[in-house]
Design a binder for these strands. Sequence first.
DNA 1: GTCTATAGGTCGATAGAC
DNA 2: GTCTATCGACCTATAGAC
Lengths: 177, 177
Amino acid sequence: MPARSDGATTRDRILDAFETLLVDGGSRVATLDAVAAQAEVSKGGLLYHFPSKDAMVEAMLARLQERGRTDVEKMRSAPEGPVAFYLNTSVDTGSDFDRGLIAAARVAQESDARARETLAELRNGWFEVLAEHYGDNALARTVQLIGDGLYFDDTTGLAHERSLEHVRDVLSRIEAI
Amino acid sequence: MPARSDGATTRDRILDAFETLLVDGGSRVATLDAVAAQAEVSKGGLLYHFPSKDAMVEAMLARLQERGRTDVEKMRSAPEGPVAFYLNTSVDTGSDFDRGLIAAARVAQESDARARETLAELRNGWFEVLAEHYGDNALARTVQLIGDGLYFDDTTGLAHERSLEHVRDVLSRIEAI
DNA sequence: GTCTATAGGTCGATAGAC
DNA sequence: GTCTATCGACCTATAGAC
């Protein structure tokens, strides 16, 4: 039982803090000390919930996987259609899910196989919905790559203002064929 | 003057080692000790050439910028056309230039402003050539995003075998309009 | 469940021999 | 130009009080 009365459990606050630090500064900055400070727990308190840094990574990925299943459901039943939903959420919306995704990508780049597998599984879910929608694997794959590009630019600080607008323009031309 | 008779100077061997470690394991792994070992120099020897780790980053980015100018020239005059050249080189070809690009992206993610600026400048060069070629900013931007997506997938270990083939298919449909 | 204190190791950087 | 030796700061993880 958590000692606080605010919404999140200590466990979730710690994972939130870990993700935030990974997103903002990479894993070099996301030390146990820094995570504890950000989550407003002592280092000892942190290590009660996650006995090692590795266990913390594992828990973060498990939570992301869970949230990913919800996201695919939302994408499938989005009123604006799955493509618009997918592209819109490819630019960072600041959601908890986005933050978790970026954090996982940071970890994956340091050759962490579990993080890579989690991301691959999420991407397969999105691709399936896109491929069902278009009935065209080539177009589905291309849209997914555009989403990856939007996402990469966004997380590297290279995003261009009008990217989304340009993409919508080009996609409307393709869909008009 | 270098003490060795092989092609690369000690300085270049150190930068190569730094990039390789950044690409393979991220900046947490790319320590001065590790870079020195990979470059087969002592840490003291390394710090003779680059008085600080920061100076090493700076030199790496300067070298990348120089190589980027050459790349844009090659793209502009490529016999297969700038688009094919751009997309083909967006999947990691294993070249020294690619390695440097990926290394710079790793550093940029840790909120290094210089690395971000270097990457932004390189990307502006590519975009200019694409926009000139198409005479259509929306399409040029979309192709650039596809390239970024290919690149992101590749460097995160999420690449799909047939991505490039699928993209070529879709682009040929657009260009046929 | 959460804390402090600290062990044990690694980091970037300096000093000085050759 | 390249080396070894070493410093202080910081990292992950453990031990034990409350």
